[in-house]
Structure formats: structure tokens, C-alpha cells
């Protein structure tokens, strides 16, 4: 019994070392820009770079729209599947899982074939069209996480009975959706939103192939041309992801312990 416990701790220690040591190494390297002493020069250089601000802002904006349109797509879908079409739930789950098994590069090439300038819907003809295409690509990428987060939240409330209760009180679909269902799946919506945010901020393939000035391609560009800044950017990217994960944890914990207020 004691040996088993010891082995478990050894396994955890190896795991921690495997993940933490490279991170410490990266952080330590990012502080070495000034010769002979530690400094935050690399971070200063990154934050003062106009391209950093532009790409970071662009990705933030894309993340915002991805979250909004993703929610508008997924919440009614998950609701409708739970309420009226439970038999197609396995099909919907399978479809939402596809972005995990189909590489992003395959998806984006598919998009470029479908929406190029000589197609019926020439989205890539204009900047706004390409931006819209990139946002839709991000929605596809975040679908596995967004759908599961919202579907799990819906499982915790009796969607069918709440809907019937609201209907018997005279409510129509928009009222039912936005006043009875949406506030009660807010934790799932927020969880999905934070994961989507983290995905969009770090995504490279789609933004690069659609030639948009996003944060992912900027990370790659800096990594190829500079020494210390890429390490600083890696730490910044980690911090953004951790912040998102931390908020996600906080929201799910609040959901478990606090009243579901509107």
C-alpha cells in the first residue's frame, strides 16, 4: 500500500517536472535580454511593438465575435436537440467532435476551395468576408468545447419541463429562450466562452492561411526572427490561457455553490 502511494507521488513529480521545468526555463530565458542581469526588457519590447498591439487587438475582437456567434449557434441547437430531437443527439455530438479529428489545415483548405474568389460565395474577395470566414472557422474549431459545455449545463436543468411551464404561462419562444433557459445555462456558456477565447488567441493555421493579422501568426513571426521576445510571448500566451482556465474554474465553482441568479 505504501509502495503504491510512493509510486503515485513519483509519477506526479515526474509529470510536474516535465511540465514546469520547460516553463521555468522559458521564463528565465525571457528575462535575460539585458546582458549580465535579469530584466523585463523582452516584455517591454513585446508590449511596445505596434504589431503586437494590432494582432492582439485583432484576435481579441475575433474571439469576441466568435463567442457571440458561437453562443447564438450552439445554445438554440443544444436546446432544440434536448427538447425536440433527442434521437439525433449522437449525430450532433459526432458532428461537433469532427474538428478534433480533422486537422485545421484540412478544414481551412476546404474553406478556401468553397469560398474562394471564383466560388458561389466568394468570401475571400474582401477583407470583411475573409474576417467573417476566419470567425466561422474559429466557431468550427471551438465547437467541441462550446457544445459540450452548454449541453452539460442544460443537463443540470429540466429543459423540457421549464419550457412547458413557461409555455403554459403564455410565453413565446424568444421569452422562453432568453428569460428561462439562457440564464440557467450561463455557467456552461461562460465555460465555453473562455475555452473559445483561449483557442482563438493561440490559433495559427487558419489565420495564417487566410492571411489575417492575428496573434497566432505574429507569435510565429516573432519566434522566427527574434531571440528573447518569443519566450516572453510564450509566457504571455500561457498567462492568457491560465487566466481563461482560472475564470472557467471560478465560474463552475460558483455555479455549484451559489444560487442561479439572473
Amino acid at each position: 500500500m505504501k509502495t503504491n502511494r510512493l509510486l503515485a507521488w513519483v509519477a506526479i513529480a515526474i509529470g510536474v517536472v516535465y511540465f514546469i521545468v520547460p516553463l521555468i526555463g522559458t521564463f528565465e530565458f525571457s528575462l535575460r535580454m539585458r546582458r549580465g542581469e535579469y530584466s523585463f526588457d523582452a516584455y517591454q519590447s513585446v508590449f511596445s511593438d505596434m504589431q503586437f498591439r494590432a494582432t492582439f487587438g485583432y484576435s481579441m475582437l475575433m474571439a469576441f465575435f466568435t463567442i457571440i456567434f458561437g453562443i447564438l449557434l450552439v445554445v438554440p441547437t443544444a436546446y432544440w436537440v434536448r427538447l425536440r430531437l433527442p434521437q439525433i443527439r449522437p449525430v450532433v455530438e459526432f458532428i461537433t467532435l469532427l474538428p478534433l479529428v480533422i486537422p485545421a489545415i484540412v478544414i481551412v483548405f476546404g474553406y478556401l476551395r468553397l469560398y474562394n474568389s471564383s466560388s458561389f460565395i466568394p468570401l475571400t474577395n474582401s477583407t470583411s468576408g475573409t474576417n467573417a470566414l476566419l470567425m466561422l472557422s474559429y466557431i468550427t474549431l471551438s465547437l467541441p468545447y462550446m457544445y459540450r459545455a452548454i449541453d452539460t449545463a442544460m443537463r443540470s436543468i429540466d429543459v423540457a419541463t421549464l419550457t412547458e411551464a413557461a409555455e403554459s404561462l403564455g410565453a413565446r419562444w424568444p421569452t422562453i429562450m432568453f428569460r428561462c433557459i439562457f440564464p440557467n445555462v450561463m455557467s456552461g456558456v461562460l465555460s465555453g466562452a473562455f475555452i473559445t477565447f483561449a483557442i482563438v488567441m493561440g490559433e495559427f493555421t487558419m489565420a495564417a492561411l487566410l492571411n489575417r493579422p492575428a496573434f497566432g501568426p505574429y507569435l510565429q513571426l516573432v519566434g522566427a526572427n527574434k531571440a528573447y521576445e518569443p519566450s516572453a510571448l510564450a509566457i504571455i500566451a500561457f498567462a492568457i490561457t491560465w487566466l481563461s482556465m482560472g475564470l472557467l474554474q471560478l465560474v463552475s465553482r460558483l455555479q455549484k455553490t451559489a444560487p442561479r441568479k439572473a
Binding site: 436543468i157 429540466d158 419541463t161 421549464l162 412547458e164 411551464a165 413557461a166 403554459s168 404561462l169 428569460r179 428561462c180 440564464p183 440557467n184 444560487p259 442561479r260 441568479k261 439572473a262
Partner: peptide, 15 residues
């Protein structure tokens, strides 16, 4: 329909 209904599972809106 002008009908009031009470459900077995209460169905109060949690929010």
C-alpha cells in the same frame, strides 16, 4: 390556451 399547470417536478425557474 388560458390554462395554468402545476408539474410534479415543481418547474420553478431557478434564476
Amino acid at each position: 390556451r388560458n390554462i395554468g399547470m402545476v408539474f410534479q417536478a415543481y418547474a420553478l425557474f431557478p434564476n
